[in-house]
Design a protein around this nucleic acid. Structure first.
Lengths: 344, 344
DNA sequence: AACGGTACTGGAATCGTTTCCAGTCACAAC
DNA sequence: GTTGTGACTGGAAACGATTCCAGTACCGTT
């Protein structure tokens, strides 16, 4: 009886390499992993054989024995939005350079999120978890503790418990409000963005609004604050609501550029001009902000990812001098959507 | 001598569970992995103990024995751009549901890309590779073959060799051109986008331009075609070049919405109106397109990711009826940036 | 020539699973 | 009371690496 199945080519094992190089298993392992106590000649022999057959060690076997996984889980609530993508790019680039693999977990809605923390799909698969852009709740923290020996850090979101890299939201908001107030605006609206799938947190960007108004002795008008989900269309709808108040605002402070983009459409569709009739400012410096001449508070998302990953490496390597709380600066970028209010 | 180190809590092993449940190793394994031939009572006992101690099997050990990794590598040239992020979301959601882990590899520039294909960091770590949004060259294909038994598929980019999910670029381009031609435009410019880090491929979106003009009996003017990198600022610069030709185009066909956004800024900054002086159309239906009232050809990026992942699952499960070439439809979305040319 | 030391080397034991194989047990059939 | 059957079970042998331990060979000393 002929066997019909062609012999499936098999990945080589360390034993194969050792045999072909005419050395023992231990020696082959040491030669390949760069340990001392291998004579140069032997090492070369092993490396040559390995290279010739394009051999690489089986990471799973290696990790089973060694204990550490060489992987990091990155958990993010959005992937298609600039801020998250940029952070992810930053994280990935430094981890890849250090030979870590990135396991991606998207927790878009509440259901995803609950399931992630309940089932912990990354359990026993990673050395660390980087949480991108959302606060981890108390119950979720306890759940994460089941992942023994796993470091947790946060990127792009303030966090009291875990090491983190973020911007100072309060400061960014004050920069924005300061700019508007400095131009002479007094009737300033805020489009407050929240994540509807997440527990309501008092955000620094919102606090900045109230603090700034208060510092300027301006009495806040509740009708000028509308709350909506992040996103352009949401911003547009929120702006429509703002345009329905009896006395229009002369300026709008939006929690993010994308929200501001939407608001800009509504303003212009209503026949009003920017900045002559209404000024508007965002936060982010999204790549499209410059295309729309939007004045904004710039934050470097990629950098936050890079710094977070570097922080993580420092922690994993037990480097004593690793900072565990890094704040990335933000800058006011003045373009053409803000100007002094018209003299009334 | 007291030992100073606190006993580090250890992950439980299957042996621990088996002992605590009072069963043998094999039985515990069978009970946990849902195999038959375990009495209901025994199974319950094991599962209860496992749940009580929050035990999960070590994936690395399990995979070492079983052979399959349960992981898929996703390779993408950009993460912070909408199209790639959306595809990634789609891929991740279906893979996660099927208990696959996603290993993310970002190959931003040529150097990253070369290094990825030379060093194959995903080697022996995944069951499949999904290439997102770029064509794989011949040499790279050969390199991928070193990953024995690994399925390769492509998402969001046409591909002759691997199973793939994509839109029909030629058709999308013709839809765009058809719209402009139908409005009566004859002097149509094209902003052709390419990836400077990648080998020049004749793109369907470009071919559509020439074919459409030819079909309409319009003689193409080489001065009306400019080539640039993808991106808003690049689109803006390209448009500036187009505005410098002696006889202005009455319409612009941009290879993508982001490029169109940039072009729109340039047009308006030059004091021209859209669509009265110049019409413009893009491709993508980027979330911001509606905010800018941009007429465009809509493609569903997330869907492409979903379909690609489903295709991959079908292939991995050896389902006979798995399609290996899926084309996702595109639709013309008319907004306010296109209109008939002014009567001259 | 015996000895100690250095510099390598080979192989066994191990990591935590899965899977296979040889039982064990209860029960029905003869 | 055997015997056969089927349902379950326990434990050994993998999987492919790393690491430890016990050698071996060779060198320079005495």
């Amino acid at each position: 009886m002929l066997d019909m199945d062609a012999e499936q080519p098999r990945e080589l094992t360390l034993a194969d390499i050792a045999r072909m190089a005419g050395v023992g298993l231990g020696t082959a392992s040491r030669a390949l992993s760069g340990m001392p106590n291998v004579s140069p000649a032997t090492r070369k022999k092993v490396l040559d054989v390995a290279k010739k057959h394009a051999y690489v060690v089986s990471p799973d076997a290696s990790r089973l024995k060694k204990g550490s996984t060489g992987r990091v889980a990155v958990v993010a609530p959005h992937l298609s939005r600039w801020f998250f993508g940029a952070i992810l790019e930053g994280i990935e680039s430094v981890l890849r350079e250090s030979q870590f693999d990135v396991l991606l977990y998207h927790v878009g809605n509440l259901e995803d999120r609950t399931s992630f923390f309940e089932r912990l799909p990354a359990r026993r698969k990673v050395d660390a978890v980087i949480v991108v852009g959302f606060p981890v709740e108390e119950a979720e923290r306890r759940s994460l503790e089941l992942m023994l020996g796993v470091q947790v850090i946060a990127a792009g979101g303030q966090h009291e418990v875990y090491p983190h890299v973020c911007i100072d939201d309060l400061k960014a908001g004050r920069q924005a409000m300061g700019h508007l107030l400095g131009l002479g605006h007094e009737r300033i609206a805020m489009i407050e963005a929240i994540d509807p799938d997440q527990p309501r947190q008092p955000s620094g960007r919102s606090r900045a609004y109230h603090v700034a108004l208060n510092d300027s002795g301006i009495k806040p008008d509740p009708a000028l604050v509308v709350t909506t989900a992040w996103g352009g269309e949401q911003g547009a709808a929120a702006m429509a609501q703002l345009l329905s108040v009896s006395e229009l605002p002369t300026a709008v402070y939006a929690h993010s550029d994308e929200v501001a983009f939407g608001a800009m459409r509504t303003i212009r569709d209503a026949g009003l001009r920017i900045p002559e009739d209404i000024s508007i400012i965002g936060i982010d410096d999204h790549p499209h902000a410059s295309l729309l001449h939007l004045t904004t508070i710039k934050q470097d998302a990629r950098l936050q990812g890079v710094l977070a990953a570097q922080m993580l490496l420092g922690i994993l390597r037990h480097e004593e001098d690793t900072a565990v709380s890094v704040t990335v600066d933000t800058q006011l970028v003045i373009r053409r959507t803000t100007a002094a209010p018209r003299p009334s």
